[in-house]
Design a binder for these strands. Structure first.
Lengths: 221, 221
DNA sequence: GGAATACTAGACTGGCCGGCTAGAAAATCA
DNA sequence: TGATTTTCTAGCCGGCCAGTCTAGTATTCC
């Protein structure tokens, strides 16, 4: 890496950003690595060579791999929360259309990375047995936040008459993330979008949405 | 381990089973380890000490960790195929009742192991990025087999009038395993049955099943 | 009975990975 | 300007892990 070659020993020239750049680069590379390979399979050296930073620097910025991991979860959570707020909170769209758009966007995202990147939270959730126990609560909390956001969106759908009033939005929102994580996992395994599409269709059918684009779970017609 | 204490050096007395016992014990322990921790996090030594077998024996029976892993997948697949055949093929029950019973059984299974064991296929699927590429096709194949079995069951449900004729059983079967893997993952993460229940209810609601035990996704009443 | 076979015993190796520490240069201050 | 502090880096260390190797012993085959 070019950056590594130019890097000199000793304190580097002061940067305008106050040296946050290196740290941020590590976090960014770490998040990518975790979405691809999970925590255990991601070596610190992987991240380091990716960014072009030597090991000593890493332990200047982070106390341990565990602390690093915790920060990666937070960073990903913040990123994803923002993403959800943008999609699901877009008042210019009807509520169910927002959900549909979010799924389509996520689909594009996975496709763009050749289905190599999944969901950081899903990956770490599966790994929990071999992970610092402190991660568990945080991961659950993050998922709950997403669930909450979707619940609000579904309630707005009810208010707009897009969703039958009888439905339990909390349950439906919970159901979505359970299944969506499964769909992302499967899409990564199969390296194709079909699982995402299958789950999207099925979920909208469960909501009883009138299929705008051939959605719905009945044979054509 | 007692077995280890009794184990003597040298060629052991011929066993009726032709020496399959040690090998089987390794496979059994391996499968358990993979359902709990996945492939990467499972050390060969873990399995070895668990069973009380020295390393030399392991490499007598298996060419490599990869070969061992491949066999674990097959073993788990065979076990699970059998399980599905028993539940979903039980002609004494109505088709949708069988599916319900299968889910209830799986739920009991997870509970029995304190939600520490998940699905071997799901675990390895998530890990694929760091796994021998040869595993991928096999994992997909296994899931397809499960899907096939459920599809047949759903078609029988249609024939029995339990399921609306318009539903696409192949799609619905695919949807189930996508979401079910997600539910198992989430149950393992949260160490409780709620995600399994949530998905079960939702899926049966999607089928349009008349809720026999309070299932369905609408607020009570 | 001697040779081949089947399996076990467990030390050893080489590589990788998380973590650590001495040290070097910029920044700050007297 | 020179001492001191702060900030960051180079590269080593110890532990773990897959896989190897040699030795050893009971059984079977010839």
């Amino acid at each position: 890496m070019d950056i590594a070659a130019q890097r000199k020993r000793g304190r580097p020239p002061k940067r305008i950003d106050g040296g946050l750049e290196t740290r941020q680069a590590l976090v960014r590379a770490g998040v990518i690595a975790l979405t691809e390979k999970g925590f255990a399979a991601t070596g610190i050296d992987d991240v380091l060579t990716q960014v072009g930073v030597p090991k000593g620097s890493f332990y200047h910025y982070f106390a341990s791999k565990e602390a690093f991991g915790a920060e990666l979860i937070d960073s990903y959570a913040a990123y994803f929360d923002h993403k959800l707020d943008r999609w699901l909170g877009d008042r210019r769209q009807p509520p169910l259309g927002r959900l549909h758009d979010f799924m389509a966007d996520a689909r594009r995202g996975m496709q763009r990375h050749d289905y190599r990147r999944g969901c950081l939270v899903g990956n770490l959730g599966q790994e929990m047995a071999a992970l610092p126990e402190s991660f568990r609560a945080r991961l659950i909390e993050v998922l709950l936040g997403w669930q909450q956001r979707l619940q609000v969106c579904l309630e707005e759908a009810q208010a707009a008459g897009e969703l039958a009033a009888g439905h339990d939005c909390a349950q439906l929102a919970g159901f979505f993330w359970i299944g969506w994580e499964g769909a992302v996992l499967r899409a990564k395994l199969e390296r194709r979008a079909a699982p995402l599409d299958c789950f999207s269709r099925g979920y909208l059918a469960l909501l009883g949405a009138t299929a705008p684009e051939g959605f719905g779970f009945t044979k054509e017609g």
